[in-house]
Design a protein around this nucleic acid. Sequence first.
DNA 1: ATCGATGCAAAGCGTTTGCAGGGGT
DNA 2: ACCCCTGCAAACGCTTTGCATCGAT
Lengths: 157, 157
Amino acid sequence: MNSTRLGHDAVSDALGTAGLRPTPQRLAVYDQLAAMDDHPTAAEVFQAVRPRLPRISLATVYKALEALAAVGAVDRLNPAAAGGPARYDARGDHHYHFRCLRTGAIHDLPTRYDPALVERLDPALADDLRRRGFQVTGYRLELFGYQPSEPEGERRE
Amino acid sequence: MNSTRLGHDAVSDALGTAGLRPTPQRLAVYDQLAAMDDHPTAAEVFQAVRPRLPRISLATVYKALEALAAVGAVDRLNPAAAGGPARYDARGDHHYHFRCLRTGAIHDLPTRYDPALVERLDPALADDLRRRGFQVTGYRLELFGYQPSEPEGERRE
DNA sequence: ATCGATGCAAAGCGTTTGCAGGGGT
DNA sequence: ACCCCTGCAAACGCTTTGCATCGAT
């Protein structure tokens, strides 16, 4: 569904290169994450993979997500509220997100990470940061609002 | 230090209008927050107000921050990592933040909330969102990187 | 045989809640 | 008198960790 999602081979390679094993659990977690397009929580991934791996534990899902994040195969998205669950993103590149304030779902936006965004957005700000000695290594842009309501499949955080 | 910070009277008024009482604890929490410029966590505010209010509890600090946020006197900033503490902002307006990846400190950026940011950043994206029925009510822009190291006063999350 | 990964249970951390006591209007 | 607030303690949700077992090289 998305051109930036990796296949088993690419994920296996990425894990292997980092000295991590491409276990069935890790690959299943990645598959499940890549198949869901509203960026599920760890608990949701856990429920979704249980039919395939009935003996998997939630702790293993967390560890798998950590391993996948370590090799850049997934991104962990910050919780919307303190104490809320983090959500995960199977894309390996940077992009913007839209977060629904009603359901907590996160959708990808068809835009790309733009290293020059700050410069373009506000040259004076970029200049000011440089002058103050702040080294900017990245940014996060997140839109929020409300997605069209769906008759089913709703989720609340 | 910052023109958008409110005085006791304004905070008291805001609380009163909402049917909330301007208690010493709430005002002290607001004062402390306004006096710190790296956007402390609830625990840090708690420690900072203890000398003035030795009997205050952490729960009261949380409740005070909630009350202040409810009337718009403070903003709660999402945790950087899942399970990490939220940070609080004494400014009543919207603006961007710079988050230090080393210390977790958050600094204000001298920019303002721009309702037309999405339109300006990417008109095609704005159009696409409208077409798909997504209602955008706000956004969050956060830069991260590294602040100049300080000889003292460092903090890690 | 080695060494990492799994899965279970328990701990950890930030935050919220229940509730009795207290204070302002 | 009323109602909100405080402060203590306990509960809560999400995540991580300790540890014995398992599995692949």
